[in-house]
């Protein structure tokens, strides 16, 4: 399969995924407690005739598949309803919060990738040594840490005791430091483990052996041959970790009172602000789908073997 055909195929497969995600949101809306009209009015419930008129206007009297089709249609056109409590369109609210979450996610991807690569490099240079075991331990520790507790500990040390950084909120780049470190900490273990494995795999390949046979210095071999060739699977992993990180961001944001998607989701659950909740879940899911798609395509571009498998 040629590269372009592969891209076309992947895009085609992504279409039903997007539709299914939007349908999930629709059914979620149906499952959530409280019907939309009751929730919309809150304190002041309308008389039955107003309710009936509204049901007709909102199409709630139609069969469920008609409602689903209408919902998907509106969602695709960017109409995700309005916040029940403030009347703000969900799209504009979510768009604003989304940028904040993206900043946090990207910052922690950068930190965790750099630190993870460094750890992997150290342990892959001396496989099965003491330092390799230590890195392994650190890695397991990394993905065993509850990110919310780790966040609290960072606040305790860096903002309560040392008073170096703000404990939360979003005021300038300084308030991004602690949340992104917290989120990076729980992610770097996976990256280190995987990168180590990827490096060791390259390490045993012929061209590396040949390079060493030619008498290149060990460090040069590591950087020039091993690291460079292991980069493809590593980039792919980092891409796929994006979704996990976005999920992690949801929790991290709550610890640091960081106004992103995560806080929006948790707040909207407490506030029963369902349009905002559904919009947020859809946006994150769709982002992950798009990122995965890009990574797939990129991977296929870099490694032609993948296309054949598809």
């Amino acid at each position: 399969m040629s590269f372009l055909r592969y891209v076309f195929y992947r895009l085609l497969v992504a279409v039903p995924t997007v539709l299914i995600i939007i349908s999930f949101a629709f059914f979620l809306a149906k499952l959530l407690p409280g019907d939309p009209i009751t929730v919309m009015f809150g304190e002041l419930q309308p008389p039955p005739e107003v309710r009936k008129a509204l049901e007709e206007k909102l199409g709630l009297d139609k069969p469920i598949y008609v409602q689903l089709a209408a919902y998907v249609g509106r969602a695709l056109q960017g109409d995700w309803g309005k916040s029940i409590h403030t009347g703000e369109p969900v799209t504009s609210l979510v768009a604003r919060r989304f940028v904040a979450t993206l900043e946090l996610t990207l910052a922690s991807i950068i930190i965790s990738t750099l630190v993870g690569l460094l750890l992997a490099y150290i342990s892959a240079s001396r496989p099965n040594s003491a330092i390799d075991s230590l890195v392994r331990l650190i890695s397991i520790g990394s993905y065993s840490i509850p990110v919310f507790w780790w966040g609290l500990m960072l606040i305790l040390v860096f903002s309560v005791n040392l008073q170096l950084l703000p404990p939360g909120g979003k005021e300038g780049w300084r308030s991004l430091v602690l949340p992104s470190i917290a989120l990076a900490t729980v992610n770097l273990g996976m990256i280190a483990r995987f990168s180590r494995a990827a490096m060791l795999e390259v390490y045993t390949q012929d061209f590396v052996t040949a390079a060493r046979a030619r008498g290149f210095a060990e460090r040069l071999v590591m950087i020039r041959y091993v690291l460079r060739n292991a980069l493809v699977p590593i980039v792919t992993l980092v891409g796929y970790r994006f979704g996990v990180l976005m999920g992690g961001a949801v929790i991290t944001e709550t610890v640091f009172n960081y106004p992103g998607m995560g806080k929006t989701i948790v707040d909207s659950i407490f506030a029963r602000d369902y349009p905002v909740l559904l919009g947020s879940i859809m946006v994150i899911s769709l982002t992950v789908v798009v990122v995965n798609l890009i990574v797939d395509i990129l991977y296929a571009f870099l490694d032609p073997r993948v296309r054949v498998k598809a």
Binding site: T113, R228, L231, V235, V238, F301, L302, D303
Partner: peptide, 13 residues
Amino acid sequence: MGASRTFIAAVFL
């Protein structure tokens, strides 16, 4: 996997 592809990956990162 050619060096150019690796190079592109690195540039992307």
